[in-house]
Amino acid sequence: MYLIHVRLKGPDTTASRPDLATIITSCAGKADGLEHVAVHPGPEGDVTLGLFLLADRLATAERSAARLTERAVADHPALRGFRVLTAEAVLVPGPWWDS
């Protein structure tokens, strides 16, 4: 399972919707491998989605997350005006970074 962060830009400064995780989940098909969605509102209409996806490789999970969110933004009326900014795994710093 992979955690992919997808950054969205909303149409205004109140982009985070209480039903955003449900909307994304409703747009997912079995091939997307979606297991769970977490929503993290940010400043100025930004929102970060944490998509937990089953995939055989990281690159596959990133492509699946991008496709799913692009599809949701394009097809779901409640997401009109949203844009996908990024869809990628986040590097987590480890103790080796300072060496």
Rank of each mutant, 00 (worst) to 15 (best):
L58W: 05
L53D: 02
T60P: 00
G50I: 00
E62F: 01
G45P: 04
V39A: 08
V47S: 07
E62L: 03
H40V: 12
P43S: 03
E35K: 07
P41K: 09
R63K: 04
A31Y: 10
T60H: 05
C27T: 13
A55Q: 06
L54I: 07
V47F: 09
G42T: 04
E35H: 05
A31K: 13
I23N: 03
T60G: 07
C27E: 15
A28M: 10
F52Y: 14
L49K: 00
T48I: 14
E44T: 09
T48L: 08
P41Q: 13
V47N: 09
R57P: 01
L34I: 13
V37H: 10
R57K: 10
L34W: 08
D56A: 10
L49D: 00
H36F: 13
F52L: 15
H40K: 09
E62P: 00
H40Y: 14
G50N: 06
D32M: 07
G42V: 03
V39Y: 08
T48V: 15
G29E: 15
T25N: 09
F52N: 04
L53S: 04
I23G: 01
A59C: 05
A59K: 09
R63E: 02
I24D: 05
G33R: 08
V39C: 06
T22W: 06
A59Q: 14
T48M: 14
T25P: 00
D46F: 12
P43N: 04
F52V: 07
G42H: 04
R63M: 01
G50M: 02
G45C: 13
E44V: 08
P43L: 04
A59P: 01
T22M: 08
A28K: 10
T25M: 12
K30R: 12
L34Y: 07
A59E: 15
L49M: 07
G42M: 09
C27A: 15
L54V: 06
C27D: 12
A55M: 05
A38Q: 12
F52W: 14
A61M: 03
I24G: 02
E62S: 01
A38C: 05
R63H: 01
P43I: 00
V47C: 08
S26Q: 11
K30D: 14
G33P: 03
A38M: 11
C27N: 12
G29D: 15
A38D: 15
H36M: 12
I23T: 08
R63L: 00
G45D: 14
C27Y: 06
L34H: 06
G29R: 15
D46N: 09
R57A: 15
F52G: 00
T60K: 04
H36Q: 14
D32N: 12
S26I: 06
G29S: 14
G50R: 00
L34D: 13
